[in-house]
């Protein structure tokens, strides 16, 4: 849940990037980090193995600016995508305000996408959330690769409820900010409605 501090006039929200291993969650955060003005970001923390696979999480605090005199901060987290890190993924979902599902568009990763999305649903339920009621967006990443599936196929499997979705290439940054913007907007609209 977001944390509203009337004393320091701040609102903090938590966004989690979820998806199968090597889909580009960390790359998304790295691009946001590179392109954000120094005064608007904190340090990016990556708890990763020596081979740069995320071990626990990546963390990037962003200060977007003020709304009605309240500083609006978003804390971006990624989960470790590899299947056997499930216990860690559950922990990171605690207190989540919005979720970005990063799908790997390559044909051979479709099963991994579906498994990860199902895992997201189950893990959210364990924390008392429902994916369909949370601010949620989908990103079809790696659109630059040769063996990608058409977006319509991906959409059919991964976005049946028609939440906002975006094509992306996180290494070049295409679609990265559009995705972040969309989920942040959904979170703020939720806050506005007092959910």
């Amino acid at each position: 849940m977001s944390f509203i501090n009337y004393a320091s006039r701040e609102i903090n929200c938590k966004i989690v990037y979820y998806g199968p291993g090597l889909c580009g969650k960390t790359t998304n955060l790295q691009f946001v980090y590179q392109k954000t003005a120094p005064d608007a970001k904190g340090k990016m923390i990556s708890l990763a193995t020596e081979t740069e696979r995320t071990l626990f999480f990546d963390f990037l605090p962003l200060a977007l600016g003020e709304i009605r005199g309240f500083k609006t901060r978003f804390h971006l987290y990624t989960v470790p995508g590899q299947v056997f890190y499930d216990a860690s993924r559950k922990l990171i979902l605690k207190g989540v305000d919005g979720v970005v599902f990063v799908a790997d568009s390559q044909e051979e990763r479709m099963d991994a996408n579906i498994e990860s999305l199902e895992n997201l649903r189950v893990n959210l339920q364990e924390q008392g959330y429902e994916l369909d009621k949370l601010p949620f967006v989908v990103q079809y990443n790696k659109r630059d690769l040769p063996s990608v599936l058409p977006v319509d196929n991906l959409r059919k499997e991964l976005n049946p409820t028609n939440v906002p979705d975006f094509e992306a290439c996180a290494t070049t940054g295409e679609g990265v900010f559009e995705t972040l913007k969309a989920v942040a907007k959904l979170i703020l609209v939720d806050l506005k409605q007092g959910k």
Binding site: M1, F3, H75
Partner: peptide, 30 residues
Amino acid sequence: KNGQLISGVGETERFDTTSLASLTAGNIAA
């Protein structure tokens, strides 16, 4: 417990309290 810093006192300017807060919460969760 979600990793949001509530308040800090002492030599806070010498430390990255936002990152410390997030890692502390991760630590407690783990």
